[in-house]
Design a protein around this nucleic acid. Structure first.
Lengths: 243, 243
DNA sequence: GTCAAAAAATGACTAAGCGTCAAAAAAAAT
DNA sequence: ATTTTTTTTGACGCTTAGTCATTTTTTGAC
């Protein structure tokens, strides 16, 4: 890679970082191409040499952070425990990921609107879809493996993919509701992520996914995630809280 | 109410209907004040006498359809059956509601973004929040009553509000994923709403919410919803399908 | 080091939409 | 019929996406 190419790649990353920080600090409605150019001390035209349109920045940000999520999921998949532990780890990973790097859920939501898919480059679309398939595929495999090794009894009226869809809905719906302006506290939900984790446990119990967890085991599992699996990410999380 | 006042109220409703149909037929990104005025054969300024801003139209549409949802929920609450039946009815009602009147979920999502709350009138905000509280309160009551009458054992580590939040997340997350461009079919989910209903059953089973359902009972229950509870709404649904 | 050709950066410009408001039109009152 | 009030209008200001001719910088041949 030549010096020139490296420069271009660096600037590409710079623009993305700036977009990310604007999104996190000021929100979606204040993210504009002009603004990115201004902060980067380039002109608008230069930004447009890197991204065909605003949506292209969005999807590339999305790809960037879905890649990170993918890594977390792979960690979860390799967690030393049962398949049940691992799927809880993946769920937990998603929550950690939503917290670190502000507005990620928000970003994903925007992506599925405004007809973003129609405006974006084919290349980005393919990358995005491939990542999505990877993520779903990974969780699918977890469920399938649990069936294979006898942890999860085969469901008569629920395919593995449907279970994945349900769990995915639970998590992303929960993240969405948190991200919205709902006064969850007023409704009696003080720690939404913890509530969702407990609900996941309820789902797994409802599926008779062995081994069922006692409260103590569940707490221990979460602690293990914090101290072994997602140490680095949680550090980052704590730093954000400090600011 | 004077003739004048009636005229104004009618036009208000007209603008809302037009906005709704544009939203349904052409999508959010093609909804503009100019467009509404054009279709209604008024000028932009007149539209602005009814709605302080674009967001105000959105939230009033939202209020309109949340009122409909509220009615469906009240029907569900009065369903002749167990509390378990009723909460499934409410869940089902939400699905029926999402289908009839296109893009409702989409609309609600938009509402929780862009800092809509900051732009909208105090009055609409209050109406919206009150409706939201009604909806959550109603489902909360269902859960509480199930605990009181012994259907649902008291949960050690899960408050009723948390259960409601979880179920709500499952449903709204599911609706969101359906509304997005995800190729759910390719992932192995051919009937997302049915999958979600089954997952709700799994959740209720996991909570040991009595009486557990056999497949036959479950199917019968759904049939009963279709033939007794939501007859009118489903007719409307079928009509939309025809178009 | 010089200069022409190639590459990159720029910002004026168009288009489109939100929201405003002075002027025009319509309705009501006298 | 005329004045006053209310309503409607659409031109205008403003912001932002996206384009493209012009300017600036870089490159490499000599």
């Amino acid at each position: 890679m030549s010096r020139k190419q490296r420069e271009i790649a660096n600037r590409h990353a710079l623009f993305l970082e700036i977009a990310e920080s604007i999104l996190a600090d000021e929100g979606f409605h204040l993210l504009s191409m002009e603004r990115i150019a201004e902060v980067a001390e380039y002109s608008k035209g230069t930004v447009y040499q890197h991204f065909t349109c605003k949506e292209e920045i969005l999807i590339q940000l999305c790809i960037k952070c879905m890649t990170q999520l993918n890594k977390l999921f792979v960690s979860a998949e390799q967690f030393d425990g049962t398949q049940r532990d691992r799927i809880i780890a993946a769920f937990y990973a998603h929550q950690v990921w939503s917290r670190t790097g502000n507005n990620r859920t928000d970003m994903l939501m925007h992506l599925s609107m405004h007809g973003v898919r129609e405006k974006v480059t084919e290349r980005s679309l393919q990358q995005h879809d491939e990542l999505e398939q990877n993520l779903v595929g990974l969780v699918n495999r977890m469920v399938q493996q649990a069936i294979d090794n006898g942890e999860l009894p085969k469901q008569k009226h629920l395919q593995p993919a449907e279970i994945v869809f349900g769990i995915w809905s639970l998590n992303s719906g929960g993240q969405m509701l948190q991200q919205s302006d709902l006064p969850l506290e007023d409704f009696g939900v003080s720690n939404a992520d913890m509530s969702l984790l407990r609900m996941l446990n309820v789902v797994l119990d409802g599926l008779h996914w062995q081994p069922l967890h006692s409260e103590a085991q569940f707490k221990k599992l979460l602690k293990k995630f914090n101290t072994e699996l997602f140490v680095d990410e949680l550090k980052q999380d704590a730093e954000i809280d400090k600011q």
